[in-house]
Computed example of a mutant assay.
Amino acid sequence: MFSRILFLCLFVALSGTCSSLTCKWLHHNFRRYSERSMELLDSMGGPYIETTDRRDNETVPFPYPLYKQASSASAGDKLDFIVQVFEEVGALFKEDHKSVSWDKGHVEKFRMVINGQAEGFSKCIHNQRTPNKGLSDYFKALSHNILKRNGHRAEAWELIRNQIKHHLWRTDIVISSLFSAKS
């Protein structure tokens, strides 16, 4: 009797852990969506610029420690983190971007692809998601300290676009670790 209960508990635990690794959306759509979001982000503007105002980078440094933590997390926690990144990026790009000369169609398509990634990865999560407070605070800081403080000017948006490119690269690394963990 005890061995059956132990086997059942082990089965439930492993199926929950491995289910994200067998998620159909992840295997069939991830790469296509990832490439498309990067293409659209690249085509929105010109060359990526770094800020000339050191205060912007000091105020909102890229959250490398959060990505390092996510990379070593469980598969489910990695997916939670990735979904939150895409949701936060989608929300950020809802803000006023009239000052930039980006192709509005590309911006809208970018938002659609980012939201599609958030929805797709959400399908791979079977438990209640727990938002990462550090990641939420980081995106709030981008919105307040970069965009709002600078009046949503084009230079601020270009800095945001540069930050988002780094996020897309880093999410790819975290997601790729799901595939390598499976091998």
Rank of each mutant, 00 (worst) to 15 (best):
S19L: 08
N115H: 04
K104T: 09
F121M: 11
D103K: 02
N127C: 00
C9M: 13
F62W: 04
Q84F: 11
P63R: 07
Q128R: 10
V107I: 11
T130K: 03
T17A: 15
P65T: 08
N57H: 01
A118V: 10
I5F: 11
D77S: 13
D77F: 07
R31M: 09
S101K: 15
V107D: 04
K148V: 14
W25Y: 13
Q117S: 06
H126Q: 05
M1S: 11
N57C: 01
I164S: 00
L8T: 14
H144T: 14
T171Q: 02
V12I: 15
D53R: 13
T171K: 03
E58D: 13
S136H: 00
S177H: 15
I160W: 06
V107K: 14
L6G: 00
P47Q: 08
K140M: 08
A118D: 10
I146P: 13
L178G: 07
T51D: 03
K165R: 14
L40C: 01
L41V: 04
V83G: 07
F11P: 02
F139R: 08
M38S: 11
E35S: 13
G46I: 01
I173V: 04
F2W: 10
T17F: 14
L135Y: 00
S43P: 11
C23N: 03
E58W: 08
D103H: 07
S71H: 14
A181C: 04
I5Q: 05
A91L: 08
D172Y: 05
